[in-house]
């Protein structure tokens, strides 16, 4: 069932992550993790490499099935079609043009032709790539690929938007533009979950932040609250202090 056929009314919270746990045969166990993201909210998940961000995102997007707990998007455990996602890597088909990319994904999500055209036109406008959309994506710079994927995710009009390092590899101007678009999407009532290593970006964008390290969600709060709670001049220092304080205790308990 495509989204335009589903006709699901999405209430609040849009995303509900409840005590999800993912175990791997090799590697650490992630979770239990719980948090929610409501309409118009930008929730940032921050943590070092290997902290469990990607695993958490994959459970939210429905790629991984949690070993315990559940993820609900719009009150449903079936996330397919309700989540738009921008992966950290520039995942593109180099032999397709920008327009062909947009049509391809729009057609996977929507069966109505008018709606598909609308999505493509909107994504084309958001991307700002202009005539470059007629060129093969293999000829794009990393920044152009990123803009294409971000524009597509924003245009898909899903209740939940998951952005993994949305401004990674972008120049200053493109980063500013992408941040503006994310804020606009939130104002339009979409729930946004993002990860970023850029703490300044997180401070500017996020309404709430989740600190994640070694597979555990250490704390959740508004950026200024977390800074006050853990000390430091900014979110970066607060995060380091939080990891030392909370995980230090956890490790001692073990």
């Amino acid at each position: 069932m495509t989204r335009d056929d589903a006709g699901v009314e999405c209430g609040n919270p849009v995303l509900e992550v409840n005590n999800v746990v993912k175990k791997f045969k090799r590697g650490p166990t992630i979770g239990p993790i719980s948090f929610t993201v409501s309409r118009g909210e930008i929730f940032a998940l921050i943590g070092p490499n290997g902290a469990g961000k990607t695993t958490t995102i994959r459970m939210i997007t429905g790629i991984y099935r949690p070993d315990a707990g559940y993820v609900k998007v719009c009150g449903s455990v079936a996330q397919r079609g309700f989540v738009a996602y921008v992966p950290e890597e520039s995942a593109v088909y180099p032999r397709l043009t920008g327009y062909e990319h947009l049509y391809f994904y729009a057609k996977l999500y929507y069966s109505d032709k008018r709606r598909v055209r609308l999505i493509v036109e909107r994504a084309a406008s958001i991307s700002g790539l202009g005539d470059n959309l007629r060129r093969k994506v293999g000829e794009y710079s990393k920044g152009m690929k990123r803009r294409l994927l971000v524009a597509l995710a924003l245009a898909l009009d899903t209740p939940l938007l998951v952005l993994d390092e949305p401004t990674s590899g972008l120049d200053v101007y493109s980063s500013v533009e992408v941040r503006r678009l994310i804020l606009r999407a939130a104002r339009d009532g979409r729930a946004i979950l993002l990860t970023s290593h850029n703490m300044l970006e997180v401070e500017r964008l996020a309404t709430r932040v989740g600190f994640i390290a070694r597979g555990q969600l250490i704390d959740i709060g508004e950026p200024h609250v977390l800074i006050e709670r853990y000390g430091g001049r900014d979110l970066e220092e607060a995060f380091v202090n939080a990891v030392q304080r909370v995980l230090g205790k956890t490790i001692a308990k073990r």
């Binding site: 997007t61 790629i63 996330q79 397919r80 996602y85 995942a91 996977l108 999500y109």
Partner: peptide, 12 residues
């Protein structure tokens, strides 16, 4: 290429 991730979360 990472495109599998986008396909995996799509409605297909």
């Amino acid at each position: 290429s990472g495109t599998g991730e986008l396909l995996a979360i799509s409605p297909i």
